[in-house]
Design a protein around this nucleic acid. Sequence first.
DNA 1: TTTTCATATGAGAAGATTTTCATATGAGTT
DNA 2: AACTCATATGAAAATCTTCTCATATGAAAA
Lengths: 103, 103
Amino acid sequence: MKNSTYHFFFGSLSNSFRVNILLVLKDGEKSVKELSKKLKTEQSKVSHALAVLKKCNLVKSRRKGKNVLYSLNKKTVIPLLNLIDKHAKLFCKGCCAFCGRCA
Amino acid sequence: MKNSTYHFFFGSLSNSFRVNILLVLKDGEKSVKELSKKLKTEQSKVSHALAVLKKCNLVKSRRKGKNVLYSLNKKTVIPLLNLIDKHAKLFCKGCCAFCGRCA
DNA sequence: TTTTCATATGAGAAGATTTTCATATGAGTT
DNA sequence: AACTCATATGAAAATCTTCTCATATGAAAA
């Protein structure tokens, strides 16, 4: 696996708006409009963000009538977020940028 | 956990030079100079990169004489890279940016 | 305590990503 | 077929990140 692959993958998560989308999608499949509403954001911004996440297969989509519904690739995203939660708990208690004091 | 925390964490990995450092450190502890040599890069660039990785506790450091030796936080980094290798194998065969054909 | 060697830091320039706005596309409705 | 609504796309402007260079710091050696 090329190292640049990791970079590509992590890059898609290096943006809090895109991470927010993933967190909203934990609740289940949503249309672009629903996401747009929930995140109080302009539609095209949501579409651009979803395109990046989709390129990495972190989300998938299906058309349903006029809408396109996006959902999480749970198999990857859930363990990934858990891993980082665990990391933060183990290594980042009041001692690093995670703690919100010393960023 | 704040969503911005994920973003901060992933941001540190969203750069292929920093990922390269982690991959080199898989082989074991290295000084800044050794990394600099191995990665054919100017020293200050390496130091800046290490600072970002350290802030997230993805690497740790200890001084030994004149040198500062950096090593991997294996507990987090190894499972993390494995998770993404697995993801790429499962979801990204010739169908996405991972495959190198359709980025 | 001066010199040397390794590493860290700061600030501006260079480069990359994100946001925004205008517009295109494409499915369903009339 | 023309219209509407949801989504996607492209390109320029705005913002953020990285790189580079000059310089600071700090431990060990002379």
